[in-house]
Structures are given as C-alpha cells and as structure tokens.
C-alpha cells in the first residue's frame, strides 16, 4: 500500500505504508500535480509535462472530465470541492485513470460541509464499485497533522464501502508502471534479465 502525500515531511514516523509518493506542483517529487481552471488550460499544461512521473489533476468538474480523456493523466486527485459526475467515472474506468479518495479533506472540514463530503464519498464509491473504476485511497496530507496510519486510512474507507484490496492493487500498479523496470503490464513482468537479453 502506497500513500500519496502533498508535501515533503522532515521525519516520517512508521505509519505502515510500503512507500510514499510525493505529489508536488514543483517538479521535484515523484508525482506532478497540475491545477487547471479550464480544459484548455489543462491541455496546455499537460503539453508542458516532459518528465516521467505520475501526473495528478486538480480541477473542477469540466477539467476532471477532460482529464480522464487525456493519455498523460494517471490520477484525478481529491480536494474539498472536487465534483465527479457519473459519466466521468464511467470514462475513468474505460480509460484506466485512477480516482483518488483522500482522507485529509475530511480532517479539514466540519459540520454540514463534511456531511456533504460523506454523502459524495458514498455516491462515488457506489459508482466506482459499479464500473470497477481504478481508485486509490490515500491520506493526501498537506502537513504532518494530516498524516494517519495505513490501518486508519483503510478502515475509514472500508466503513464507507470501498474495496480496500482493489485500492491496494491499483495503487501498486500505478507506482510500478513508472518506477519498476520489470513491470510490463498486469500479470506480465520480467522475472530475470541475462546479459544477452530477457530470460
């Protein structure tokens, strides 16, 4: 299980994750965050991505819908005002773009706002289950106070009906696609390399 963070922590306690992916807007993490206000802006910014890294998108409904149709996009990142419609989730399943479900937005909100977020989460999970949409569960922590253990993150989303083994699988697949040289595709990987070539 991998956690996707939005900051570089100075010293990280053992939280039970296999490893961490740092999704940052500055080009120094193993993931890149692209914020866009319109589909045009998104397309423009995506053209500028040259580095081999996981690309995450933050934007409004129209931006998310455009993002799932772009080949360079790997994950639709989660934030407080993210809105995904039914069609976007269905497209995400077809185009193999992961949907992030994050815990930190629930820590930053209270009361009615959080109530609506819970409702939206429940609906998103319902559609995710229906179309078998790739999804990842993360803390998406922006500071050290939003860090939680793997068990906590998994229990939280399990409570709302998410299938945690699938989330683990999708996260692993996403990370291996970029950072494991032996990985080719699902169920197909290089076991051993000899001097003359693949064994």
């Amino acid at each position: 299980m991998y956690d996707f963070l939005r900051f570089f922590p100075e010293n990280l306690p053992d939280l039970g994750f296999k490893s961490y992916v740092f999704m940052l807007e500055k080009p120094k993490g193993c993931g890149i965050v692209i914020r866009a206000n319109s589909p045009e802006e998104l397309r423009k910014k995506l053209r500028g991505v040259k580095r081999r890294a996981i690309v995450g998108i933050i934007g409004k409904e129209a931006v998310c819908r455009e993002a799932v149709m772009r080949r360079r996009v790997d994950v639709i990142l989660d934030w407080e005002d993210r809105e995904l419609d039914y069609a976007t989730l269905k497209l995400a399943a077809e185009k193999d773009v992961a949907i992030e479900l994050s815990l930190s937005k629930f820590l930053r909100t209270e009361g009615y706002k959080r109530m609506h977020l819970f409702e939206r989460l429940r609906q998103e999970i319902m559609v995710i289950r229906k179309f078998d949409v790739p999804f990842i569960v993360t803390t998406a922590a922006e500071n050290q106070y939003e860090l939680r253990t793997r068990k906590q993150v998994e229990t939280f989303f399990k409570f709302f009906g998410a299938e945690i083994p699938k989330a683990r699988l999708y996260a692993q697949r996403l990370v291996r696609r970029y950072f494991d040289e032996n990985y080719i595709m699902d169920g197909f990987e290089v076991e051993q390399l000899s001097n003359s070539g693949v064994v």
Binding site: F106, R148, Q152
Partner: peptide, 25 residues
C-alpha cells in the same frame, strides 16, 4: 469498532491542542 476507529482517525484537536492520533492495533 469501525465507528470508533473512524472517530479516532478524524480527531484533529483535543482541548484546543492540535493532535495526530495514530492507531497501533
């Protein structure tokens, strides 16, 4: 159990002090 785990996870302040609750097991 699940409810308490969720409540513990979502706890951010205790008596006005910012906290990070981490469950061990």
């Amino acid at each position: 159990l699940d409810k308490v785990m969720v409540a513990l996870t979502l706890m951010t302040h205790v008596g006005g002090v910012r906290v990070i609750p981490l469950t061990l097991g």
